Simulated assay, not measured.
Amino acid sequence: MSHALSELTAAGALVILFIALSFASPHFLTSDNLFNIGAQTAVIAIIATAQTMVIITKGIDLSVGSVAALSGVVGAIVVRDLGFSVWAATAVAIAVGAAAGLVNGLLVTVARIPPFIATLGTMSVGRGLVFIVTGSVGVYSLPESFQLLGNGEFLGLPFAVVLTAIVAVGVAFLLSQTRFGRYTYAMGSNLEAARRSGVPVRRHLTAVYVLAGVLVGLGGMIAASRVNSGQPNYGIALELDVIAAAVIGGASLFGGQGRIIGTLIGAFLIAVVRNGAVLLDISIHYQQVIVGVIIWAAVYFDQLRRQRLEARG
């Protein structure tokens, strides 16, 4: 019931915002802008899906922005300098994300560093590597085929949206219908109880971070494809958007709770907020304020919901 309430609340806010922007800007409902919202939502949704899995385990991943940037930059470099196809480059970008996820997982499970600190370090390392690899200069002169993931179409739909749907369905099935999902929720609800029940905590938690890294790598490649370049500055403060999307959709920062359908609604809401702010010529700084307030409200609502559940229980 609490899942449904969070999702309905987020969906209601999205509908209201959608209607308001339709009246506020004549450019909002154009086909080009809706296509742009779809592609923008795809990147946020895929990376927010990764964040949701980590949050369910009672963790957090602050490195998603820098890892997405590094993955997209490396993908662009292997296309431009090594002649890789866009699919091979995507595989490389995913591998970069998976490697970062493995580092995060090992830092949390083997080194026993709290997720906040571990991923904060990875965020710094990842951003530094991006600037080292690129020399702080964007990766340009890419073939037109590089735009397939971010700007291509499949059956009239943005290709990025199709990829998002595949990812969302796959991860939702994984979390709701498999042992992987049961272990993930169990660890977030009570780590010690999960360990005593026979859950291989270290191995499973590492696997969660690796899978999250895979999705971040894919999201970074889509983002690079959208602008047909590898941008070393991409993803700064992206962690705010994806955390907001996950929490708005019902994922609890206290662990053990969250669904992908809610995350998708949250991601769409954040993308529409960003898009509407651009159309209304609202400064990027004010956009950050808006997202921050949304996070406050979502976390406060989550706390109230948990207090009510505890009072009933």
Rank of each mutant, 00 (worst) to 15 (best):
N233S: 15
Y234N: 12
L238G: 00
I243P: 09
F268D: 02
H204V: 07
G213A: 13
M221G: 06
V242E: 00
I248C: 15
G217L: 07
I243T: 02
L253I: 05
I222T: 05
Y234H: 13
S252T: 07
G249I: 03
A267H: 02
V247G: 11
L215S: 02
G250H: 10
N228Q: 12
G258K: 06
G219C: 05
E239F: 11
G213W: 05
M221F: 11
V214S: 13
Y209V: 07
N233Q: 15
N228W: 11
V214A: 10
G256M: 15
P232E: 02
A251P: 02
T263I: 05
I265E: 06
I243F: 11
R259M: 09
I270S: 10
L264M: 10
I270K: 06
G250W: 00
Q257L: 11
F268M: 15
V227P: 09
F254C: 05
L215C: 03
Q231V: 12
V242P: 00
A246V: 04
A237N: 15
A237P: 08
T263M: 15
V242Q: 00
F254N: 08
A207L: 12
L211I: 14
H204C: 11
G220C: 06
S229H: 06
N233Y: 15
A223C: 11
L238P: 02
S225V: 08
A237F: 15
R259L: 14
L211C: 08
S252R: 04
I243R: 06
E239Y: 05
L211H: 05
G213H: 09
G255A: 08
A224N: 11
H204L: 14
G220D: 04
L264W: 05
V210D: 00
R226G: 14
D241G: 04
A223E: 13
V214L: 14
A246P: 04
G256C: 09
R226E: 05
V210C: 12
A267L: 01
G266W: 01
V214P: 01
E239N: 05
A251W: 04
D241Y: 03
Q231T: 14
L240K: 01
A207M: 09
V208E: 07
G255N: 02
Q257F: 12
A207E: 05
G250R: 07
I236C: 07
P232V: 07
V214K: 07
I236D: 09
F254G: 08
F268E: 09
G256K: 10
A224L: 14
L253G: 08
I248D: 12
I270Q: 02
I236G: 11
V216S: 06
A207P: 06
V216E: 04
M221H: 13
S225W: 12
V208I: 04
A237D: 14
A251H: 01
G230E: 07
Y234Q: 14
